[in-house]
Nucleic acid binder design. Structure first.
Lengths: 335, 335
DNA sequence: CTGTTAGCGCTTTCAA
DNA sequence: TTGAAAGCGCTAACAG
């Protein structure tokens, strides 16, 4: 079903049909009505590939995310999809499984797909070849969750938030506060969060125990519960993300510890599911959906104005400490 | 960066460049090497829109899902993406938020995007206008999770699995088994699961209490906990999906009930996160990723052979009862 | 206000 | 084995 068929059946030229769709007020109401009715009758839908080829604009935004299996990114994508739709853009999401090689591949595929711009969550902005390629191609983009002075980013102050978490735990009487993280090298977020933790500990005059780095998330429960069985176990666990926090909750149970009575657990991300757990997860809630939406807005705005996005255009969105039930005062017997 | 530029720089015709990429053995090794090196040098990437326009094939598969906020579908999409990639296809996922109008809209957009085929999870196959439109357009498609004799579907035996859950609960001594479900009308899966539950109850000679239908998932905890505070409360809850089961776990705690000591809770879906909860969720585990992957395979196969997919080509994949910790025998004081 | 036409980048006959 | 050229469906000058 092509524009030709519609034109023929309506007895007008293809240009008129095109105008009727793209610039409704450049044709007489009568023609427009005629074209519209014929189009509907024929079930005509403009061919996106042809339009893209001709206009050099696809009205598609590429999205590069680590994984959709972490609800954080699923929530973010939700926000991206909604905002993009509202702005008249479609999205093309690709996942990288936290692998650098896949980041590059994703960017290539998106360029080949003629996306007008991209929103990406990369592992590490400073070392990303994918970003270099993007900049070289002059393709507009925004980083989400990442934070780097040389790129436009939409994120929260992970470092500050993490330091704040430590301060809260300290205020609750905790002094043995350990941090649990996934592979530090896998994401700049975890590095920032760890840095914030160290700052918080230093600010409280506390010595930070070694980071409990859990390379394979699958084995997190084992690793953490083993750690919790040690005699000088921490009284509080600050986890680099909510998925890890959930596993830590399980690790605590496995080690015979009751949360929050025997152990405080705090996460980071603010996934919706955390609110449904028992105990409800205490966490640093990021506005995941909004991070996505604002990224889109920034990008769309840049696309409309033709101005490339400068790093200064980036946004630092507010986070909130979500007071759940997995975090309480240190037991007096220990304190 | 177009094929023209590569051709010019390599001193060959565009046809040769095209062949070097699409039919490497239709050009001499020397020409191929030349073309490849020039292309790499120039950073040439074939323009997908142009190719699609010319060949009438996009090598893109459309995907229509209710939401990515339910890990079930995120896991499924993961499987779809992997299988599609392996088969040389890209995917274009769209979510409908369980709204019929959005299903139609999604199908339209995917048709306009020239997808070669679609995988969809619809609300109800028998009443879906989106499916009717698809069939009219002659576009190949597979339904995932849905089950209907008139369409090719990849799913599990929800009904049988649900009846089996009831049988297991009965074997554990439960007689007061209630079912918790989202809006029944919103999905054929919940209807099948409810039907299976009723069958299971009937088979055990038990009277089924009224279905506890929770229209708004947000209020599930309130609704269920209220239900659990009634004097003649059930001793076991069969939840139509894992998200509801997680909320029921919370509702139980809210009602002062300990799981599984005072109440058994069983879910349906088998989301990965269920295994990390405490208590670990007992559930009917569907092979979510495989459901996606097999759907792709079916579709790709049909695309390759040019044969339209018949309803009989559908697949019924095996499910497994995942024995977690949220489900145990009925306490002797009650039995 | 409407029509004619060139051409976006690519693949694919058809000839050489 | 390679090249010339048509044309996929659409939009945007330009002309009328």
């Amino acid at each position: 079903m092509s524009i030709q068929a519609v034109a023929r059946k309506a007895g007008v030229s293809v240009a008129t049909v095109s105008r009727a769709f793209n610039f409704p007020d450049k044709v007489t109401p009568a023609t427009r009505a005629l074209v519209e009715s014929v189009a509907r009758e024929l079930g005509y839908l403009p061919n996106a590939s042809a339009r893209t080829l001709r206009t050099q604009r696809s009205r598609v935004l590429g999205v590069v995310l680590p994984t959709l299996l972490n609800p954080t990114f699923a929530e973010c994508l939700q926000g991206i999809a909604a905002a993009a739709h509202a702005a008249g853009y479609a999205i093309l999401p690709l996942t990288t499984a936290y692998e650098i090689a896949q980041e590059e591949d994703a960017v290539s595929r998106l360029i080949a797909a003629n996306v007008d711009g991209m929103i990406l969550v990369v592992s590490s902005p400073s070392t990303s070849a994918a970003l270099a390629r993007l900049q070289a191609a002059g393709s507009p983009y925004v980083l989400a969750y990442n934070r780097h002075p040389a790129h436009p980013c939409v994120s929260v102050d992970s470092e500050g938030a993490s330091a704040d978490v430590v301060a809260r735990l300290v205020a609750l009487g905790h002094r043995e506060i350990a941090m649990v993280s996934g592979t530090l090298a896998a994401s700049d977020r975890s590095q920032q969060r760890y840095r914030g933790y160290l700052q918080g500990m230093a600010a409280a005059g506390l010595a930070a125990p070694p980071l409990l780095e859990v390379p394979f998330v699958e084995s997190a429960v084992d690793a953490v519960s083993r750690h919790l069985r040690q005699p000088q176990r921490p009284t509080a666990l600050f986890c680099s993300n909510d998925l890890l926090a959930i596993r830590s909750l399980r690790a605590a149970a496995r080690a015979g510890l009751q949360v929050p009575r025997d152990l405080a657990v705090v996460g980071f991300d603010g996934i919706a599911l955390g609110e449904d757990l028992t105990p409800m997860l205490s966490t640093v809630a990021q506005p995941n959906s909004e991070i996505g939406a604002r990224s889109v807005e920034l990008l769309v705005q840049a696309l409309a104005s033709g101005t490339p996005l400068s790093p200064e255009a980036g946004l630092l969105l507010p986070h909130a400490f979500r007071t759940g039930e997995s975090c309480g005062p240190v037991p007096s017997t220990v304190a």
